[in-house]
Simulated scan of single mutants.
Amino acid sequence: MAQTPLSSPAPSSSAPSSEEPVPAYVDPTKPSIARVYDAFLNGTDHYEVDREVLRRVLRAAPEAVDLALENRAFLIRACRFLATQAGITQYLDCGSGLPTAENTHNVVQRLAPAARVVYVDNDPTALAHSRALLAGTADVTVVEADIFEPEALLRNETVRTALDWTRPVALLQLGTLHHYNGEAVRTRRDIMRAYIEALPPGSYVAVSHFLDPGGEHSATARTMEEMFLHSMMGSGTFSTRAELEPLFSGLDMITPGLVPCADWWPDGPQLKPRTAGQRCIAGGVARKP
């Protein structure tokens, strides 16, 4: 798939041709989180309804493009760390979305060719594209499940057999939990606790989440949140660092801890000031003792 993961979006041009038939599994009248994210990243698998969500968000808060770009850059750096420094060869990628350039398996299998990756999603578009593009890829499996129902997901036969649960597993929740709308029934902390309890000792957890950084950039975060919550997507909650820290309860945080994604082991020295958008998504990696 053609993709430019670290450039500004061009939503009017990167889109399926109107002459191409819409697949039966796609409802082009309803936006998809996976397709909107694809539009943010200059992907090719989105429709006018998804681009309209993107345009509305960017009109009100142009900084929002940095959320997608920094989330993808954090995934790449975190996976490199897990594959090399942590020596992890098993990955459970929750809410993996559309298969874009430098997906989890691209990063980790380049560094550890025998690594196994299980992608989990319940978006029909993401599932269909993933299965088509990843067919025949060694040690990569795509599973349909609700990532916010951890007990059911972890009982899934494919999840149980594709990964060896007697050995460490890396659990990835990257850009997913801020789209959870069921806090009144079950909190994000409860969801993560269920996953963490099921992980073997020595496993790792990587999380990225929209951040309200406080101070002068809090208004930017809340503007973006209002746009997401009142858009056709209807989700996208920004949380403070204190609200996010419990997601890693019982784990040993890897230095530098829970920080803006752009500050988590960047690839080089910081020569430009961080944008407001870069300050509004946080990430962290932690190890289960």
Rank of each mutant, 00 (worst) to 15 (best):
M1D: 15
Q3M: 07
T4N: 11
S7I: 08
A10S: 14
S14Q: 13
A15Y: 09
S17W: 15
S18R: 07
E20T: 12
Y25C: 03
D27L: 00
K30S: 05
P31S: 03
S32I: 01
S32P: 06
A34G: 15
F40C: 15
N42W: 05
G43I: 06
D50P: 00
E52S: 05
R55G: 00
R56I: 00
L58K: 09
A61H: 04
A61Q: 06
A64R: 04
A64H: 05
L69P: 01
F74N: 06
R80P: 01
F81S: 01
L82D: 00
L82C: 02
A83W: 01
Q85G: 00
A86E: 00
A86C: 01
G87T: 08
Q90A: 04
D93E: 08
C94N: 11
G95W: 09
L98D: 02
E102L: 13
N103G: 13
N103H: 10
N103A: 14
H105S: 03
V107D: 05
V107P: 03
V108S: 00
Q109A: 00
R110W: 00
A112C: 14
A114C: 00
V117Y: 08
V117N: 07
Y119V: 01
V120A: 10
V120G: 01
D121L: 04
D123S: 10
A126K: 12
L127Q: 14
L127S: 15
A128I: 02
A128G: 11
A128E: 11
S130E: 12
G136M: 05
V140D: 10
V140P: 08
T141G: 03
V143M: 13
I147K: 01
F148V: 02
E149H: 13
E151R: 14
L153I: 14
L153T: 15
L154F: 13
R155W: 12
R155L: 09
R160F: 08
T161Y: 10
L163V: 12
P168W: 03
V169M: 14
L174T: 07
G175I: 02
A184M: 14
A184T: 14
R186V: 11
A194F: 02
I196F: 01
I196E: 04
E197Q: 15
E197L: 06
G202Y: 14
Y204D: 07
V207S: 07
S208W: 04
H209W: 11
H209V: 11
L211A: 13
P213E: 02
P213T: 06
H217S: 07
H217Y: 15
A219H: 06
R222K: 12
T223P: 02
M224T: 04
E226H: 06
H230W: 02
H230V: 00
S231R: 13
M233V: 10
R241E: 04
L244N: 08
L244S: 07
E245F: 02
P246G: 04
M253V: 01
T255R: 15
T255E: 15
G257W: 03
L258F: 09
L258C: 08
A262R: 11
D263L: 15
P269Y: 02
Q270H: 15
K272R: 06
R274L: 10
T275E: 03
R279S: 12
R279F: 02
C280N: 09
G284V: 05
R287K: 10
P289N: 03
P289V: 02
P289Q: 10
